[in-house]
């Protein structure tokens, strides 16, 4: 195993080679340049941050809502995703987009849908604002530098409201995470997420 330092050198080399071969895509956005570092705590008291914590490869934020049927339908997929990438040093966080959600309601929802990810209540929509989340479910992956490596849907099952594929044909978030693990640039760093529109509180 490479230590993080060597690994980052290796990744830098890979990205130089990659960019020499084909022009590397710029990140979707850079968070730190805009708003700095945002730290927050999940319902179990653990710390998370955007840009991601030290020692992690990136923070995977998925915005959810207890009352959004499209977001709720994705919980089995998201549970599996965390299992598949359990050894990849991602920091997984589900962010409740409803700024007024109470802890009890979040815990009940977590139990009902067998959610294994850390859960964060986002009072004042601070996290959503920080990363400019728009809908639930929407996935945003941010690395240590604050680069947004992926933003958008979990997969392409929903093409539009009421326009649904029987099965997804591209697993965009998973593909992005796989590319990040392999040190490659994310093939499609931005996709359109379909779901319930987040209402920002004043």
């Amino acid at each position: 195993m490479l230590n993080p330092y060597n690994q980052s050198i290796a990744m830098a080399l890979i990205s130089i080679i990659a960019s020499a071969v084909s022009a590397q895509q710029p990140p979707v956005a850079v968070i730190r340049e805009q708003t700095g570092v945002l730290n927050f705590t999940d319902t179990d008291g653990n710390e998370h941050a955007v840009p991601c914590k030290k020692g992690t490869r990136g923070v995977v934020l998925v915005f959810i809502n207890t009352e959004c049927p499209i977001a709720n339908a994705y919980h089995p997929t998201l549970r599996r995703l965390r299992e598949e990438f359990s050894d990849s040093r991602f920091d997984f966080v589900m962010v409740h987009a409803d700024a007024n959600l109470k802890t009890d309601a979040a815990r009940k929802h977590q139990k009902d849908y067998e959610i294994t990810w850390p859960i964060v209540l986002d009072s004042g929509n601070k996290i959503a604002r920080h990363v400019e989340a728009k809908v639930t479910p929407e996935a945003i992956v941010v690395d240590a530098k604050g680069d947004v490596l992926y933003r958008g849907r979990i997969d392409d099952r929903y093409q539009d409201y009421g326009r649904k594929r029987p099965e997804p044909s591209t697993h965009d978030l998973k593909v992005a995470m796989q590319a990040i693990v392999e040190g490659k640039s994310v093939p499609t760093p931005e996709t359109k997420a379909i779901g319930c529109v987040i209402r920002y509180v004043d």
Partner: peptide, 27 residues
């Protein structure tokens, strides 16, 4: 329906989604 729309608070809470899905005529 996945959530209630019975009060002002209910409708305000889901207002952004209501605007989008009515415009789309999905709802």
């Amino acid at each position: 329906g996945p959530f209630s729309l019975l009060t002002y608070e209910d409708c305000r809470k889901h207002s952004e989604t209501i605007a989008v899905v009515t415009k789309d005529r999905y709802m």
